[in-house]
Simulated assay, not measured.
Amino acid sequence: MDYIMWRHAFKIDPAKPINDDDLECLAESGTDGIIVGGTDDVTLENVLDLLVRLRRYSVPIALEVSTVESVTPGFDYYFIPTVLNSTNAKWINGIHHEALREYGHMMNWDEIITEGYCILNPDCKAAQLTGVTEVPDEEDVIAYARMAEHLFKLPVFYLEYSGSYGKTEIVEAAKRVLDKTRLFYGGGITTAEEAKQMAEIADTIIVGNIIYDDLKAALATVEAVKSVSS
C-alpha cells in the first residue's frame, strides 16, 4: 500500500527491545505500515535487526532517518524529517546535505518522502536533540503547515507531540490549511478512543510508545482508526 493511503502506522524504536511474538502481532494487526525510527541509540545494527525480522511479513516498512550511519537498503520508504521549528540548521537541512553527499548518487527518489516536522512537546527527547525550545501556538502551527505545503511543497506535515497527547484544536487548525500535503499526527495515543479522535482529524495516525507499555491497547488502535472514514 502506498504511504499516501496509510491511515494507521506503528512506529517501532530500534533502541527498544521487542520480542518476535509482539512484532508479529504488530505486523499482522492490519496496520497500513510500520515505521522504524527513534531519537537516540539508533544504529545500523539495530535497524538491520528490525528490518530482517519485519521482512517476514507483507506490511510496508519505512525507515525514518535520524542518523546517516543507520541508513540501509531494503525498506519500502525512507522518511526524511526536516524539523521546521528547530533552532539548529543541522535538523533543517544539515544531515540532509550530509546524506546526499554520501548516498545521493544511489538514491531511488520514488522511495524518499520528506516530512515537515513540527515538534510541539519541548520536554521530549526529539525537541531537546533538535533544538526546539518553544511551544508553537495555533498561529505558528498554521504558518508551519502552510510553509510545508506551499513554500517547500512537502508531501507530509507531521505534528509530533512525542509522549504527550495533542490538542485537537491545534491538529484541526493544521488540517484546515492543508490540501495536497498529508497530515501525520504522532504523540501520546494510549487508547482506541484517542486514536479514533485524532483519526477524525489527521490523515495518518502514528502509534508508538504504547506498544512497549500495553501491546493490547496499541493493537486496539488499528480497528479504531479503520472505523473512521477517510
Results as ranks from 00 to 15, higher is better:
34 I>W: 04
51 L>S: 08
135 V>E: 10
37 G>P: 01
47 V>H: 01
30 G>F: 04
177 V>P: 05
39 T>E: 05
198 M>E: 05
165 Y>N: 04
34 I>D: 10
160 E>L: 11
216 K>G: 07
17 P>W: 11
56 R>V: 07
111 E>R: 14
141 V>N: 01
98 E>P: 06
103 Y>T: 11
101 R>K: 14
133 T>P: 00
115 E>F: 13
166 G>E: 09
45 E>D: 14
190 T>D: 06
208 G>R: 08
47 V>G: 02
117 Y>F: 15
49 D>Q: 07
102 E>R: 14
227 S>R: 12
226 K>P: 00
88 N>T: 10
38 G>C: 09
156 V>Q: 12
159 L>P: 06
162 S>V: 13
82 T>V: 15
224 A>E: 08
60 P>D: 09
198 M>N: 04
200 E>H: 02
120 L>Y: 07
183 L>M: 10
110 D>A: 13
171 V>R: 07
217 A>K: 06
54 L>T: 02
10 F>Q: 01
56 R>Q: 14
40 D>E: 12
183 L>D: 06
56 R>Y: 07
51 L>H: 13
223 E>I: 07
186 G>E: 09
13 D>N: 12
140 D>K: 03
91 W>C: 14
99 A>L: 15
24 E>I: 00
194 E>L: 12
122 P>T: 15
117 Y>M: 09
141 V>I: 15
205 I>M: 06
67 T>V: 14
127 A>P: 11
225 V>H: 03
200 E>C: 04
163 G>S: 11
69 E>F: 10
